[in-house]
């Protein structure tokens, strides 16, 4: 590709991204009940349920779990719930259905990069969930000020947000990968449901990673889920510092690059064996 062609392709992609984003936003709001259910309700229940579990374990005010007391855990879990909501949701990508039912065929003949359409989903998710989380957050801070966690500093808030955003992108790529398996498999949704569950464990949504046994803890700290939820929550609370943030950015950045490469290979391979459906 010549040097001049590269920016124009990029510009085309960006333009498509904007158009697709507007379309996606319009689509999510078309089904009103769906909007409320999907966007407000989903993706935060695991940490909420865990609050009850911890309440039965830490009955005495002096009881502790690792370095956390009950109040600390509640603050942590509220953060985990918010961040899990910000993370891309596996239901946001119906790619596997599209592949399986042959809808992808029509895009293959169009002069566009299919991935840009998926990216628009991601952008839509970030925008809408960002709004929803801010709303829920403000409501919570007003209603339960004594329980609600406050950022350690403005910088901590920004750092946490960056980590979550990058982590969400990594998770989005993971979802895309799992969905692309539909080129080979015929049932993918069980896999994506399981992925999300395993992910949330690794991300410390159920139990903070620092409370886990040492070996498990050290392993998880090398994986991106930890840096997508657990670490940002602790950065936010001031339990982790600047150096940890930088380490997180490195881990997440590397993961994104690796996942992107795998995605490209998988997508190309998949298309090569794709026959569409219904001739």
């Amino acid at each position: 590709m010549s040097g001049a062609a590269v920016p124009s392709a990029l510009v085309r992609d960006l333009r498509l991204l904007v158009v697709a984003l507007v379309y996606e936003l319009r689509k999510v709001t078309t089904w009103r009940a769906g909007f409320v259910v999907r966007e407000l309700m989903r993706g935060m229940w695991r940490p909420v349920v865990m609050i009850f579990v911890y309440a039965t374990i830490l009955v005495q005010p002096t009881d502790r779990l690792g370095s956390y007391d009950f109040r600390g855990l509640v603050a942590y879990l509220i953060l985990a719930a918010s961040f899990e909501k910000l993370l891309f949701h596996q239901r946001g990508l119906d790619l596997s259905d599209q592949i399986f039912q042959g809808y992808v065929t029509k895009y293959l003949t169009m002069p566009l990069r299919f991935f840009v359409l998926a990216l628009a989903r991601f952008a839509q998710h970030v925008l809408i969930q960002g709004g929803v989380v801010v709303l829920l957050w403000s409501a919570g801070a007003l209603l339960l000020p004594q329980w609600w966690p406050q950022p350690a500093s403005a910088l901590a808030l920004v750092e946490a947000a960056l980590l979550v955003l990058l982590g969400s992108y990594c998770y989005f790529l993971t979802c895309f990968l799992v969905n692309a398996l539909a080129f080979w498999l015929d049932v993918v949704w069980t896999l994506s449901a399981m992925t999300s569950f395993v992910f949330s464990f690794c991300a410390g949504v159920l139990v903070p990673v620092s409370v886990m046994p040492a070996a498990l803890r050290d392993t998880l700290q090398w994986l991106f889920p930890y840096w997508a939820v657990n670490a940002p929550a602790e950065v936010f609370l001031g339990r982790l510092g600047h150096a940890d943030f930088l380490r997180g950015i490195v881990v997440l950045g590397l993961t994104a690059v690796v996942l992107e490469l795998v995605r490209q290979v998988l997508w190309r391979r998949g298309l090569a064996r794709y026959v569409g459906a219904g001739m």
């Binding site: 089904w31 769906g34 259910v37 999907r38």
Partner: peptide, 17 residues
């Protein structure tokens, strides 16, 4: 509520519970 995903969300929540 057509296309609300309500059943899948309800399933996820109930599984979590």
């Amino acid at each position: 509520a057509i296309n609300s995903d309500l059943s899948n969300v309800a399933w996820e929540v109930s599984m979590t519970l």
